[in-house]
Nucleic acid binder design. Sequence first.
DNA 1: CGCCAGGGACAAC
DNA 2: GTTGTCCATGGC
Length: 279
Amino acid sequence: MVFSKSLTAEEFNPEIIMNSGQVFRMKKETAGADGMPDTYSACSGDNDVYFYLNKEKDTWDFACEESQWDFWCRYFDFDTDYTSYNNIIRKSDDKFLKDSLKDAFGMRILRQDLWEVFISYVISQNNNIPKIKKSIQILCDRYSDGIHFPKADVLAFIPEAELMDGTALGYRADYIKGISERVAAGMLDIEAISKLPYADAMEALLKIKGVGPKVANCIMLYGFHFMESYPIDTWMKKIISEDYKDYNTKDAYLDYINSEYPGFQGYVQQLQFYHKRKG
DNA sequence: CGCCAGGGACAAC
DNA sequence: GTTGTCCATGGC
């Protein structure tokens, strides 16, 4: 079944979203040969979708099972009005952020599968994006069908030595095995944590071995969709020191972000991150 | 506190 | 081609 949705360039651009560092397995499937449009794919949990820009109708067309369409609307966060965030940014006098918005037109914060986000961001620590993608794909190939992310009760029973061999996971394999075991045994309920208030969810995440402040913030934003989360990695540190010199401390800078962009700090971060990485 | 862990990307030489 | 640096977290 194909579902059409009218979305402006400002409202949806998969090229921006898939290269923003928030999702590691959204793909461009075809290069648009023979006049065919570029087709993208995503999967989340047991759901799959293909989508492309329909130039005749000027819509984005999403091909998925009829029963999954509601799921995909939620995944792409179509209920959130990003244009209203953009209007606030456009009215601000933050040149770096306004440049970021122009560069990252069509950004959204996805509502991804909690389990996949959790493990993906444990993998992301002390790591770079190409290598993170590689490790995740190897896990999908080896311990699932190559498309869907392996379940906790599968990963829990893989010997650590095997989990390290040829996956480039390194010492993170131990964290992944530990977390998988606890989830599979029902001792760790990620879904329940995601429903806690912000401070409680953050506290619960930081207790988990392999999850520090940076990884916790990423899970809070990309997994739990706490839009007030503002993950700070090395790129963001670079931005703060190079592009926001007026703020002499990190806290002063964060006060500025929190007061000017309440409720969509994570979206602001995503725009800045994309812009800085693109250079 | 400082150091190490595993390993690929990336820049500099 | 080879070398050096980067990277989040936990354990010691």
